[in-house]
């Protein structure tokens, strides 16, 4: 797994004004320890900024953490911004945070491949990345 992870580049960011960054920093460390290259944009970035950075940095994965309840407003803007730059199909989009079960399917329809609610293990995320990057894009998974 480490050998595969070595070439994987992950972009992590928090959208909006949400200050809950404990989880995303834990994930950043876990992904780094799994051998991935991590770019963490920090907090208070806009969907456009994330998409632009994803393009410039040529990342494999875009990971967003939202614990403010604003995911159904902000994620459509993110996937739209990625689509506009024609990279939505090239990156693995993952969303974590306080995501209710009922929102999982709508998020997947928008183009999010992995949804990881609070309490998810970091190993579940790193494994999800390894599997989906190495095999090419597979079916959505929660």
């Amino acid at each position: 797994m480490a050998a595969q992870s070595a070439n994987i580049k992950v972009l992590l960011a928090k959208l909006g004004l949400d200050g809950h960054d404990r989880g995303i920093k834990v994930i950043a460390r876990a992904m780094r320890d799994a051998g991935m290259e991590v770019v963490y944009m920090g907090m208070r970035v806009t969907p456009d900024q994330v998409a632009q950075t994803a393009l410039q940095e040529d990342v494999d994965v875009v990971g967003i953490s939202i614990l403010s309840g604003a995911h159904m407003r902000l994620i459509p803007r993110l996937t739209k911004a990625l689509r506009e730059r024609e990279i939505l199909d090239d990156v693995l989009v993952m969303v974590g945070g306080t995501i209710p079960e009922d929102d999982v399917e709508p998020l997947q329809k928008m183009g999010v491949q992995g949804v990881f609610p609070v309490g998810s293990f970091t190993t579940a995320m790193t494994e999800f990345i390894s599997e989906n990057i190495s095999r090419g894009r597979s079916a959505p998974q929660v």
């Binding site: 909006g16 004004l17 949400d18 200050g19 208070r44 806009t46 403010s68 309840g69 604003a70 902000l74």
Partner: peptide, 22 residues
């Protein structure tokens, strides 16, 4: 809410979806 905590009005771009939310 987050816009109030961070000193932005409710109609600021970054406030979208977070007005009165938490």
């Amino acid at each position: 809410d987050h816009p109030t905590l961070t000193g932005y009005d409710s109609d600021h771009e970054l406030a979208e979806g977070e007005v009165g939310r938490l």
